[in-house]
Simulated assay, not measured.
Amino acid sequence: MAKIEVNGLTLDYALIGDPGAPPLVLTPGGRYARDTAGVPELGARLAEGGFRVLLWDRPGCGASDIAFTAPSESVMNCEALVGLVEALGLRKVTLVGGSAGSRIALMAAARMPEKVRKIAIWWISGGPVGLAGLAWFYCGDQIAAASKGGMEAVAALPSWADQIARNLRIRDILLAQDPDAYIATMQRWGQAFAYSDDSPVPGMTEADFARLTMPVLTFRSGKSDMAHTRATSEWVHRLLPNSTLVEPPWGDQEWNEVSTFPVDPANRRGRFERWPLLAPMLLDWL
C-alpha cells in the first residue's frame, strides 16, 4: 500500500510486477476499491505477463480522498488518473478498465494521448436507461439523504461505509459539505450522465475519440447487458480510429449473472471475480 497526493487529494495505490516492466493501469468499476475480488487477481496475471501494474483507488473509492469541486465524478477521476501517471513518472502507459474503469480510461487518454501506448476496455456503460441508472446509483441516494437528514444522513449511507472504514477523512469531508451545495453538486454530477445521441460515453466528444489514435481493444458487450449495452460498445469501436472489436471470454448473460454474486471480500466474491478470465486475451493482444 502506498499513498500520494494528486490534485490536492491523497490517493491510495499499489504497484506490482517488475519495476522495469512497461507500465499498465488497471481501473475497476463502480465505486469499488482496487482490492475488490477479481481486480488484483487480474493485475497479478498481467504482472506475470510482463507488465508493471498500477492498481489504484479512484477519488471516493477505497482508501482515497474525495472532493466535490469537479464538474462531474468522472472528470474528477480521470483527472486524478492523469495526475497520478504524471506524479509517478510513468511513460507510455497501457490503460485497462471495465465499466466505470473503461470510461475513466478513455477520458484520461483523451487528456494525455501522447503518454498512452494502448487501451483495453470492456463493460462500457451506456444507453438511455443504463445511464439514467448511473445517475441514480451515484447521485440519487445522495440527494435523497441530504434532503431528508443533511450530511449526517449522507455519511451514514451504505454507499460510503467501505470508504469511511478505510479512510476516516471521508466522513469528515462529507460532514464539512453544506447540504444545499452538496445537493446542487449531485444534481450536476447526475446530469453529467445524461444520454446523448452525439456520443456513446458521457464526458467524451467525437473529437476526444478522434485523438485516441493508439491501438484499442474493445470487448463487445452482451446483447442482454442493459447496463453496458452492446450498441454502446459497437459505437465506441466505430468512433475510435484504431479499435479492434472482440468477443469477451464469457457468455451473453455474464453481467446479469455477476450482478447477483455476493460481495464477499474474504472469500474473493463479487461482480469482478471473473475478470481474470480476460488475462489471456489481454496479454496476447498487448
Rank of each mutant, 00 (worst) to 15 (best):
Ala153Val: 02
Ala153Pro: 10
Phe193Thr: 08
Cys139Pro: 04
Gln142Ile: 06
Gln187Tyr: 00
Ala144Asn: 15
Val154Ser: 08
Ile173Cys: 02
Ala153His: 15
Ile173Met: 10
Leu212Lys: 05
Glu152Asn: 07
Gly203Leu: 13
Thr213Pro: 11
Arg211Phe: 03
Ile173Gly: 01
Ala155Met: 02
Arg166Gln: 13
Ile173Leu: 13
Asp197Trp: 05
Gln191Trp: 06
Gly203Ile: 13
Gly150Tyr: 14
Gln187Pro: 04
Ile173Ala: 14
Asp198Thr: 12
Met186Lys: 12
Ser147Gln: 15
Trp189Cys: 04
Ala156Gln: 07
Val154Ala: 12
Gln177Arg: 13
Asp208Cys: 01
Ala192His: 15
Thr185Glu: 11
Ala145Ser: 15
Asp198His: 01
Asp162Val: 00
Leu212Tyr: 01
Asp162Ala: 08
Ile143Tyr: 06
Glu152His: 03
Phe193Arg: 06
Ala176Trp: 05
Gly149Gln: 07
Arg166Tyr: 03
Gln163Val: 01
Asp197His: 06
Lys148Met: 00
Glu152Ile: 07
Ser159Cys: 04
Tyr138His: 14
Ala145Gln: 12
Ile173Glu: 02
Asp178Ile: 13
Ala192Tyr: 01
Leu168Lys: 03
Leu212Trp: 07
Glu152Gly: 07
Val201Lys: 13
Gln142Val: 14
Thr185Gln: 11
Pro179Trp: 12
Asp180Arg: 13
Cys139Trp: 12
Met151Thr: 04
Asp180Val: 15
Asn167Asp: 11
Val201Arg: 15
Asp208Met: 10
